[in-house]
Design a protein around this nucleic acid. Structure first.
Length: 200
DNA sequence: CTTGCGATTCTA
DNA sequence: AGAATCGCAAGG
């Protein structure tokens, strides 16, 4: 076990997606990237609950090359390109054939700060403005850019050695809940309280 | 094959 | 408010 806590077991992911989304708050994302350990604490998530969820890419059982990985058993990464330029990291949940996932919307940088800053801004962490230091991981696309995650990493198992999640020493926090962001197309589902975030 | 557009971000 | 920028998915 590393100093960042014990790796989450496969069973963590095989639960109701909304519960996993809530439980992911405070967990660490570890990406061993170019020989550097990038670490970030998850601070904001959104649950996408599969076939019955109009906001979910697999809504209605839609099964395409892009959504295929969501049908895999929980514990793998679903990473896709959006707006032709941004990648989004999701944690696939629940059992095989139940295409659900949790979008990681935000995090707090913990380690590998220089490498993260270089990945997105081409500067060391020390060279970043205070504003950028504060906001470098507070969006799903920024998070992927800083952590060096791309389409190439789609389907990676969180039980492997390169990309995984850990349970760090517990620090209590309150959990905020609200509707998901930018899914106006989803009708009633746009109002579901499926977004979770740490309130400090 | 064509076309419309998105679970975003930054700039003005 | 608008642009950037392209793979995906639906439709012809």
């Amino acid at each position: 076990m590393s100093s960042y806590g014990k790796k989450l077991p496969g069973s963590f992911y095989m639960n109701k997606t909304v519960d996993v989304a809530r439980n992911l708050l405070g967990k660490y994302i570890i990406h061993n990237y170019n020989g550097v350990k990038l670490v970030a604490e998850i601070t904001e998530t959104e649950a996408y609950t599969g076939i019955a969820d109009r906001a979910c890419h697999s809504y209605g059982g839609k099964r395409t090359a892009r959504t295929e990985i969501m049908y895999h058993p929980g514990g793998v990464a679903y990473i896709y390109l959006i707006y032709g330029m941004h990648f989004m990291l999701n944690v696939v949940t629940e059992g095989a054939g139940d295409p659900c996932a949790v979008l990681i919307r935000g995090a707090r940088p913990v380690a590998g700060l220089d490498e993260m800053a270089k990945n997105r801004y081409g500067e060391t962490y020390a060279e970043l403005s205070q504003e950028r230091r504060r906001t470098m991981l507070n969006g799903p696309a920024k998070l992927c850019a800083c952590l060096g995650l791309t389409r190439e990493d789609n389907g990676l198992s969180f039980l492997g050695e390169r990309l995984y999640l850990t349970e760090p020493a517990a620090e209590p926090f309150e959990i905020g809940v609200g509707p998901r962001i930018n899914i106006d197309y989803a009708g009633d589902a746009a109002e579901y309280p499926y977004r979770f975030f740490i309130m400090r």
